[in-house]
Design a binder for these strands. Sequence first.
DNA 1: ATTATAATTTTGATTGCTCAAAATCACTTG
DNA 2: CAAGTGATTTTGAGCAATCAAAATTATAAT
Lengths: 224, 224
Amino acid sequence: MLPSSTVENYLKAIYVGETHLVGGQKLVPMGQLASALGIAPGTATTMVKALAESGLVTYEPYNGVRLTSAGEKLAARVLRRHRLIELFLVQVMGMNWDEVHEDAEQMEHVVSDRLIERIDEMLGRPEFDPHGDPIPNAEGQLAERALESLLTCPLNTPVTVARVTDQDAAFLRFIESHHLKPGQTIEVEERDEVSDSVRLKGKDDQRMTIGARAASKLLVSSRA
Amino acid sequence: MLPSSTVENYLKAIYVGETHLVGGQKLVPMGQLASALGIAPGTATTMVKALAESGLVTYEPYNGVRLTSAGEKLAARVLRRHRLIELFLVQVMGMNWDEVHEDAEQMEHVVSDRLIERIDEMLGRPEFDPHGDPIPNAEGQLAERALESLLTCPLNTPVTVARVTDQDAAFLRFIESHHLKPGQTIEVEERDEVSDSVRLKGKDDQRMTIGARAASKLLVSSRA
DNA sequence: ATTATAATTTTGATTGCTCAAAATCACTTG
DNA sequence: CAAGTGATTTTGAGCAATCAAAATTATAAT
Ligand SMILES: [Mn+2]
Ligand SMILES: [Mn+2]
Ligand SMILES: [Mn+2]
Ligand SMILES: [Mn+2]
């Protein structure tokens, strides 16, 4: 019995939820899962109990949920599809990086393994999607990189934008129009706690100031 | 409220069912619809009543069902997607014509209008899919052709294979291996009622004999 | 240690889609 | 035309996924 689209979405949400865990956290809270999926909290509880029943997750009431190895394997597979499809739509179909998320969100559940393999091959076994998100390989492993956000990277040092952790179309268009897409080289010139902002030197030494919240979504690698 | 995948499949099945109607038939029988969709007859009845309620079909109890203009518009849209996707998978992704139907069956429900437009453009506004099935244009109109089957076309006259009306993978592979794909030129040399078979002259004057049932699925145009 | 607050779970219900089996209807055949 | 056959509809049920609102639990504040 193959997992439904709903189950796949749950597993994927738990997977990315786990990567966002801070400190000694081992479980994704129910509330976070529910809001990530845009469903009522009670629905998440019911569904997660069913997932636990089928051995895809471990569920600790009032604490949260985490994937079993079986669940993680499935989740990585869905995430792999999602990101390969996104890259395909940009690279081959010429779509914009701000409009591929919705399509991928649906297609990830229906494309055959055969087609995914074609796509992967056609793209040259890519490791990252258009937003810099890592693409799990066929075995579910993903290439990890040591990245810092614009809030923590060294000042006045060339860094390369590597990842944008927000799929919002308006935000992505903003990033693009300011030449801050992955691959671009920039420098953080100043951070101001009081004004909650970060000043950047971008392409052609263009200066710009963005809010800390936006800055936290831009991940860079410290090698120019 | 946009139609579900289920509703889209019903509408599409009724649409193609209507094209297969013979004589003065105006309605698709419930049984035929049910078996085309692989569901129980009672399920079809219930669903069709709901479709009639939403104005997508006209339902005459014990007689059958036909699309309203609203239903036909939606059905043509789904069929357009299906066939464009099939052609895309063959032409661009290099998949085989016998393995694209299943993928298209799922993808037809989820790809965005934007992506379909890209595909249509990339393929040069094609009129026929890999099996020779006509692709409805953006307005829902489809290019009709006067085709005959191998059971009715003139004897000893060059004809061009134009369409194969069976999606079965094994059958399609057979057709391909015998060089009978759409575009190929052949001749019917003899029909034998008793042995229920048809003898063909194909590529490189290769002779072959196929059953009448298979022959009825090969549609040709009488101009070589 | 109570008490308040926030998160989570439980409860009861709904919707969409499905099936099996019984009932009904339409048509053919004797 | 009566009977039988096959197609169709009705009935009763179930499953997956969802919500709103009430009940419960955990945690933080007084
Ligand atoms: Mn999804
Ligand atoms: Mn992405
Ligand atoms: Mn379909
Ligand atoms: Mn086709």
